[in-house]
Design a protein around this nucleic acid. Structure first.
Lengths: 334, 334
DNA sequence: AGCCGGTGTGAGAGCGCTCTCGGCGCCGTC
DNA sequence: GACGGCGCCGAGAGCGCTCTCACACCGGCT
């Protein structure tokens, strides 16, 4: 951690350009109200000296940091390791970069980390926070709200009834689920089942609600609880086949679950989609394209969600929740 | 982006504790050379006021930032979207957190971004950088080296001959490949093929070298180039079967490639592992465990790689390259 | 010619912190 | 009992920047 070479200060730039520090500062910050010849001189001095503003000094007086925190509260490896998060990050990064903001990443696991993150955010080190907290009982969101930092949530927080002033970006889980189920019904399937996600997450609940919107009369036999993992999908699919051997379609809460289900179906000799049609959710490419057969699924534009979150935060928009549309991607499984 | 409530300053803490600002500062920074009763008073004042040091002010004078940048140069969605990167990030995050450092994430795609990152790093906003640059011809690493920021690379940079003073952390790609191939040979396989990764990445080259270490006499017929993607694996596997129908084992450069190969093998009616044994690389769980049959593969401790990178950077260690061991994970495919 | 509004520029204060340095009290030593 | 040394504390400078404010200057008006 050695020191880098001494960097030129604004003072040096001003001296070289033959102007005052104040004028140099003005030019560096856009150059409004400075006459052209001086602007030019200062610009050249900046160039020649390789001047880069000292962000710390600037923050000290402006009280802005041009940095936002991305908080990922994820106790489980699973979600963290899936491409979902990576894609959102990418969207966020693009938007932040476009506005010259830095991205400070805070990963948490466990209670101590919560306190740490709370302290960090309350410490005013960043101008805002993007928070991913997927579990209903997660204490982190509240902690963050209390820190008084502008915040946008990724996915509807469980405790938000939708209009409590919480800003979030979510995809249309319910609508996407409806579309998937309608598609199955449209295929002429009469025994359509649903394997849910982990029901402590709003996305899982919303997808289940979407399923019920279309098949309000679906017996409890046809709804079995999963947990968003392939293993959960396998278990649920087995249970489903035992309870209801004549099932002819399955809407799985996500692609991983669908992948598990597909495996069990093959193992039990059911042909997909001939005997049983299967639809997933997410369009997680490495999974959805690699299943056998390739998975029909509901796509959400994950990267766009990230972008939008960043945009909302930077704009300081006070809008409540934003819900992005989903689209059905037809492949071979349904 | 509204202002947060005015935060207490060190001055305020000092006043409340009845000491000077200097003493308060000393206590906040460890409390050496301050007598116990005063330490106690200051600590209480900090507590009561909810004081959090202003990092900007501190950086301004110390010229340290307690922040390091993680630079991910990844033009392609593929690598970014795989769990590999996420796990490394997690390892890095843990280590940094333990040392009270922040993680600034810089994602780049394209030349403009390179310049931006170069400027940022040269700007002295962070104390160091962890760089992931997987391609041989990537200009970014050089750019960064020139920025004069302490840097640790993730994976051996292509232009590093190993002892040029470049600090990096890699896993033992070559050794892992050897182990995999030896395992196949040990199974009695006599026609062992290799589907390579994208050969503009050192990891792919090293794995190929490992293959050749064991099977120096493997004809060129048995080595076919892939690109680390499932599609590439499929293509390569087809080519392999055409060229050499009696192949009885395949060492694929990574799990995704292996997954593609498995699909083609099934399609062509080859049984795995009976007719053809398959081994992957990475032990990327969502993939390796979900293939049919579950994939035997070479595991690398990705999270530990991340940790180690961070540790090396923070310690300012000048050691050159560190290579982590791999282990063969036996599942059903070989 | 004198006044006035507007526009450009410079001087200087001060953001919140760290760190050096000098002072002061207390100990041990002769 | 005087003195050097050491340990603890406070005063104050200054990190590099922004921003307010005063001032200089210019043109157009009376």
């Amino acid at each position: 951690m050695t020191e880098t070479a001494p960097r030129p200060t604004l003072e040096a730039v001003a001296a070289r350009a033959g102007v005052s520090r104040a004028t140099a500062s003005r030019v560096v910050n856009g150059g409004d109200g400075v006459r052209e010849p001086l602007v030019e001189r200062v610009r050249r001095a900046v160039e020649e000296l390789g001047y880069v503003p000292n962000q710390a000094a600037r923050s000290l007086v402006t009280r802005r940091h041009d940095a936002i925190a991305v908080v990922v509260a994820e106790p489980e490896t699973r979600v963290f390791a899936d491409p979902f998060f990576a894609l959102q990050l990418r969207g966020i990064s693009k938007e932040l970069t476009a506005h010259d903001n830095q991205l400070v990443l805070l990963l948490t696991e466990g209670r101590d980390d919560h306190a740490r993150v709370g302290r960090y955010l309350a410490g005013g080190h960043v101008d805002g926070a993007l928070v991913f907290s997927l579990h209903l009982d997660d204490p982190l969101p509240e902690l963050i709200q209390r820190a008084g930092v502008p915040t946008v949530f990724g996915g509807r927080p469980g405790w938000s009834d939708g209009t409590s002033g919480v800003v979030y970006v979510d995809s249309d889980n319910r609508g996407g689920a409806r579309e998937a189920v309608r598609h199955l019904v449209g295929l002429g399937r009469t025994r359509v089942a649903h394997i849910t996600g982990a029901l402590d997450q709003t996305s899982a609940v919303d997808r289940l609600d979407g399923f019920r919107d279309v098949l309000a009369d679906a017996g409890p036999r046809l709804v079995v609880e999963g947990d968003f993992t392939p293993a959960g999908g396998e278990r649920a699919m087995r249970e489903l086949l035992d309870r209801c051997p004549d099932v002819d379609a399955v809407f799985a809460a996500n692609d991983l679950t669908a992948a598990g289900a597909l495996r069990v179906l093959r193992e039990r000799g059911r042909r997909v989609p001939d005997d049983v049609a299967v639809i997933g959710f997410d369009d997680m490419l490495p999974v959805a394209e690699q299943t056998d057969p390739p998975l029909t699924t509901v796509r959400q534009d994950i990267e766009e969600m990230g972008r939008l979150m960043a945009r909302l935060l930077l704009r300081g928009s006070a809008s409540a929740g934003v819900v992005l549309p989903t689209t059905l991607v037809r492949r071979a499984s349904a």
